[in-house]
């Protein structure tokens, strides 16, 4: 029991590594704030393009979405980070990480928004068009607001996944929370920093998980 305390919950070490981990948490938040809006915008773009019902465009979009959903995000990240130098493209670390996560995240958000668009009855678009709204105006005022509300639980769930995803950036030594925790662990020969990092993730993400449980139970119950 005592070893458990000194190795996993060592208060001395916690005090020492706390600022360093907080720095890492800052990077985790920044990375999330970059990747989530980009991914949402990309996903919405995919859904809007596929609502045009152009056959070839749709095939291209499906290939994009399936391709980047099939790759484990870490594989994508490693491929971009270690593969791009061979193409003589020198991407800064943050950009490489953001690009890898964007490709993955936008395809997931794309699928979610597409399902949302499909959940809106055709009559909604027709009613809007019959009063003279353009396709674009009808999308913005009538389809997107309803679609977003219909798939809100999925959007939040995927947002949670994106924040968890940022921990992979530690593999290429981007100084985010997990990366800093592992460095601190190596320096202190003690597991406390990683446990502390886990607690910080819990604190950050637990409210989202709770919210999600509520929304999901409600939405399945409606079907």
């Amino acid at each position: 029991m005592e070893t458990l305390l000194t190795v996993f919950f060592n208060v001395e070490i916690m005090k020492k590594v706390w600022p360093f981990l907080l720095q890492g948490l800052g990077m985790t938040v920044v990375l999330s704030l970059v990747v989530i809006p980009l991914g949402l915008a990309g996903g919405l773009g995919i859904a809007i393009l596929s609502s045009l019902q152009r056959r070839w465009l749709n095939r291209v979009l499906i290939v994009y979405v399936d391709f980047f959903r099939a790759f484990p995000p870490l594989v994508l990240l490693i491929f971009i980070y270690f593969g791009f130098p061979f193409l003589q493209i020198d991407l800064p670390k943050f950009a490489a990480v953001a690009l890898g996560f964007f490709l993955n995240t936008s395809s997931y958000f794309g699928e979610i928004f597409r399902a949302g668009f499909e959940s809106i009855p055709r009559g909604q678009l027709e009613a809007a068009r019959s009063t003279g709204l353009t396709r674009w105006q009808a999308l913005v005022s009538v389809v997107i607001p309803q679609a977003t509300r219909n798939v809100l639980p999925d959007l939040i769930s995927n947002t949670l996944e994106v924040i968890k995803l940022t921990s992979l950036a530690s593999v290429v030594a981007l100084p985010e929370l997990l990366n800093n925790a592992r460095q601190a662990q190596a320096l202190t020969y003690n597991a406390t920093p990683v446990v502390l990092a886990a607690l910080m993730y819990l604190l950050l993400l637990w409210p989202i998980v709770r919210l999600l449980s509520r929304l999901e139970h409600k939405s399945i119950a409606l079907h």
Binding site: P121, G123, Q124, E126, A127, A128, R129, S130, T131, G132, L133, T134, V142, P145, Q146, R149
Partner: peptide, 20 residues
């Protein structure tokens, strides 16, 4: 056509009101 459609009202069987 969008300008012209304003002059041609349409009422649908399933109402098609915007629920939001």
């Amino acid at each position: 056509i969008n300008r012209l459609r304003q002059k041609i009202g349409m009422v649908f069987q399933s109402f098609n009101l915007y629920p939001h």
